[in-house]
Write a protein that binds this DNA or RNA. Structure first.
Lengths: 149, 149
DNA sequence: GTACATTATTTGTATATACAAGTATATGGG
DNA sequence: CCCATATACTTGTATATACAAATAATGTAC
């Protein structure tokens, strides 16, 4: 469905404004797909992002700063995100002995299993996101890179 | 900058996952550009969206449901958004006399002037968003429409 | 015209976010 | 070694969001 029809706007002043509205609208649409998916699995999108980052560095621990820099959403408060994940038993935190300002975060066995459970359900989610061909997905991704400069 | 470098991820499992990460990351980047712009003008992105919708329907009033349906961000709580805009003196609300469940929202003179002030500042904002050519902007927009199905 | 469903908006509440200020540790110059 | 500055994380707070339940007016079947 065209963005004009989605938000009932006859036309846009120019194509860049149309793109801006479309990006914001599409992000909202995306979140409507993603949030219930992760909620059913007992995670938020950001919590899953942190777990995936930790798995990517296994068996090394990852400190808060590195987590922040690798997150898709840069505005997450890592301290409070990790608090939630500790509550759920998916990660551990320890003060780094070589630099006591830093916190070492590690994935636990249950955290790893939760990630695997998410993986098993991914096909269900991605079925909704395959309206573009592989070539189109590559094209959009490259143009988004270009948009950000 | 490529999304791989932005979030320090060597590679993605497939191009659709790369696109997903890129869309979410780009939206965050966009918000980092938009939020301070609107904040300087004393508005939020959603408040501005509502004002623009009201201007589009002038001189007719718009009810909450229609505002909701035309908003880029569908999850906004229109009641509380309008409360804020009334506080600022940019809109009025009246009970619709033909259907007393509905609320008629109208732009005020100060609301219109605020919109004009935003318009005057738009070129400053859009300068950051012109890394794509017009053709590329059209292309991405059309592919986003296709992505949503 | 009364009961029941539907529509339109409001409110409550738990959680999340943005942003600024605070604390603790480390580093480097004199 | 001492002090200023930088780094890494934490906390406070005001505002925003998601989501469910509540209210209130209207429409509809009988």
């Amino acid at each position: 469905m065209r963005i004009e029809d989605e938000i009932h706007q006859k036309n846009f002043k120019d194509d860049h404004r149309r793109l801006l509205a479309n990006l914001l609208f599409t992000n909202n649409w995306l979140n409507q797909q993603l949030m219930p998916f992760f909620k059913d699995l007992g995670l938020t999108l950001q919590q899953h992002n942190v777990l995936a980052i930790l798995r990517g560095q296994q068996p090394d621990p990852v400190c808060f700063g590195d987590i922040q820099n690798r997150m898709v959403d840069r505005n997450s408060n890592v301290t409070r995100l990790i608090d939630k994940l500790i509550e759920k038993g998916y990660v551990t935190r320890d003060i780094c002995q070589t630099n006591r300002r830093m916190i070492e975060v590690r994935l636990t066995e249950p955290g790893l299993r939760k990630l695997q459970q998410v993986d098993e359900n991914f096909p269900k989610l991605f079925a909704k996101l395959h309206n573009l061909t592989q070539e189109e997905a590559i094209l959009v991704s490259n143009l988004l890179d270009k948009l950000r400069g």
